[in-house]
Amino acid sequence: MVASLFGRPIYIAETMEQMYLIGIGSLFLVVLTGLFSGQGFAIAFANELSDFGAKDYLGRIMSLAIVRELGPTLTGLMMAARVASGITAEIGAMKSSNQLDAMRSFGIDPIKKIAAPRLITLIVMVPAMTVICDAVAIFGAWLIAIFHAHISSTMYWAAIRERLVFGNIFIGLVKPVVFSLVIAFISCYKGFTSEGGTKGVGQATTDSVVMSSITILITNFVFTKFFFPMLRGYL
């Protein structure tokens, strides 16, 4: 399966279609997620920090938390919920109505035709959505900073920038790439191996979302705890 993902032919039209469906389709969800979790976290942190008279640190904490942890994980989970379910359901439905076999009968490899365009799209779109989520969350936290915590705007942005260093950005971009692989592989695998008609497709879809969400959370922890500390000297 993995072997036939790569190599010719590459279906450009399908990939473009997926870019549009997955990318544009997820934008609204990701913006909402970023905005409200950014604000939520900012309120909680701002309240805690002001007890210590350290409100000015809000920007630093938000910058770090959003770019390294919140942005990638939330976007990953949202994409898992929205995209993994869609991919599994679509492939499963095609399988149960013999469309995959029909495709094969025309000499087309369904893995190249269906899985590869979705994989490529996710590798591009999950990081892109993460960046958008990050930006919106930081903006949301800024709203809280000025209107709720009454921190000066300049102070907030200076603090944000202080933690927006290469290392953090790098970590914040490596994670979504890994998450995109998790979502693509699990959702396609669950779709292609679904069995037992409509009920089977439903089950596979549920499994696909649950498995990719859990895998994302665990991978995120493993990366934060074990992999990135190993890179510390280089970043």
């Binding site: 109505s97 013999n98 009968s105 000499g107």
Partner: peptide, 23 residues
């Protein structure tokens, strides 16, 4: 090999029992 099978299938036409149209 899967590749050769694909090549071979191009010369075989099949009407599936349930149609199997791309919906």
């Amino acid at each position: 090999k899967e590749k050769d099978k694909q090549e071979l299938r191009k010369s075989i036409g099949m009407v599936f029992q349930d149609g199997a149209l791309f919906d």
